[in-house]
């Protein structure tokens, strides 16, 4: 997992509540054998005018000019501001994979669906919960200022606005540690290599048939 420390960049607005994981990445893309490459199909049904299927050349598909991420001013965005209950629906990990592959590293919303929230941390995305008023203000400011940027600083847990305002956010200390150090769950477990090896050694004596499997 890639380390996440500070993220500075263009902010895109996703101005609707209850954006579900099927909207983030429709089910036909789950047939894929990959964990990467979902970016071009992020929000597929909203983003394109035709029906998307795996294996299509996305560069030749008709895009929906009204969809927010297709507007020139939001190209290259790496921070997404969303409304409440973002990421609800099925538990598919393809949703954070698609967001990350597209380039989003931070998602700010008043609330997130539970499993999606956890899946973000597992995959190196920082989900930030701010109050509904603060999120509302962000939407207004993004709308007003073309090229609106934020600077998210995870170590100090702050978001700096272009006008110099600073917003503090909360994040679980353990999750923060993992993101900053790029530790995924596997990385965490591998910190206990000695324990695993000691267990295997003991178990090999107690139940040798479990280690003699072919």
């Amino acid at each position: 997992m890639e380390k996440l420390n500070t993220v500075e960049g263009i902010v895109a607005p996703m101005d609707r509540p209850n954006v579900d994981t099927d909207a983030i990445i429709p089910k036909q893309f789950l047939k894929s054998i990959k964990r990467s490459g979902f970016g071009p199909n992020l929000f597929d049904e909203w983003r394109y005018l035709d029906h998307g299927e795996p294996g299509m050349d996305n560069s030749t598909r008709p895009v929906n000019p009204d969809f927010v991420l297709n507007q020139p001013r939001y190209q290259g965005a790496n921070i997404l501001v969303a409304r409440e209950n973002f990421g609800c629906g099925s538990s598919r990990e393809h949703a954070p994979w698609a967001l990350l592959d597209y380039g989003f590293k931070v998602i700010i919303a008043p609330s997130f669906a539970d499993i999606f929230f956890n899946n973000c941390f597992k995959n190196g995305i920082l989900p930030i919960i701010l109050s509904a008023e603060e999120v509302d203000t962000l939407f207004t400011e993004i709308e007003k200022t073309e090229g609106y940027q934020l600077k998210v600083d995870l170590p100090s847990q702050t978001i700096s606005k272009p006008n110099g305002d600073v917003i503090r956010f909360e994040v679980d200390a353990f999750r923060k540690h993992c993101l900053i150090n790029g530790l995924d769950d596997i990385g965490m477990t591998l910190e206990h290599v000695d324990d695993i090896k000691a267990y295997e050694k003991r178990r090999h004596q107690e139940a040798p048939w479990l280690f003699n499997q072919e």
Partner: peptide, 8 residues
């Protein structure tokens, strides 16, 4: 992936 990598 976790099981593959760590057996745990």
């Amino acid at each position: 992936e976790h099981v593959l990598a760590t057996q745990c």
